[in-house]
Amino acid sequence: MKKPLTLQVNGQVHELLVEPSETLNSVLRKRLRLSGTKKGCDTGGCGSCTVLLDGKAVYSCMTYALAIDGGKVTTIEGLAKEGVLDPIQQAFVRNGALQCGFCTPGFVMATKALLDAIPEPTEEEVREALVGNLCRCTGYVKIFEAVREAGRELARGRKRNA
C-alpha cells in the first residue's frame, strides 16, 4: 500500500506516494531521476549510494523512504553551489582521487559528513570515517590525500570568514 511521503531533497520539497518497500535510493534514482547517487550493491556493502540525511551520512539503499518522512536529504547533485564545486569536490579533482568514478559520489558525501563533524581529521580519522565506502580503482591513497586537503582548505576558508 502506497503512503504519502514528504522529503526535502537538495532544498526542494517533494511530495510523493511510495510503497513501504521503497528505499531512499530508489526514490532518488527512479522517481526524482537523481542518478548521481549510485547503487553498487543495494545491501549496505559498498557506500556508493551515500547521501546526507539531516547532515549525517547514510546508505540510501538501506534507508526506507517512509521511515524518513519530513527528512532533509542532500545528494551529490546538491553540493556544488551555482556551478562552483564544493571544496571537497575540488580536492578530489585536484588530487586525482578517482578513476572510474563510480564510487566518487559516495566518497564525496561521506567526506562531507566527516568534515562537517571533524574539520581537520587525521589520516586515522579519515580511514575510520570512510570504512563503509569501497573503491576498487584507486587504492584509496589519493582519496585520503584529497579528504585531508579539503579539510585544510575548508579550515582556511572558515578562518578567512571569522
Binding site: T37, Q89, L98, G101, P105
Partner: peptide, 10 residues
Amino acid sequence: KIDATEKVTG
C-alpha cells in the same frame, strides 16, 4: 582527469 568534474558532481 578530463572527466573528473562530471564524476565528482554525479
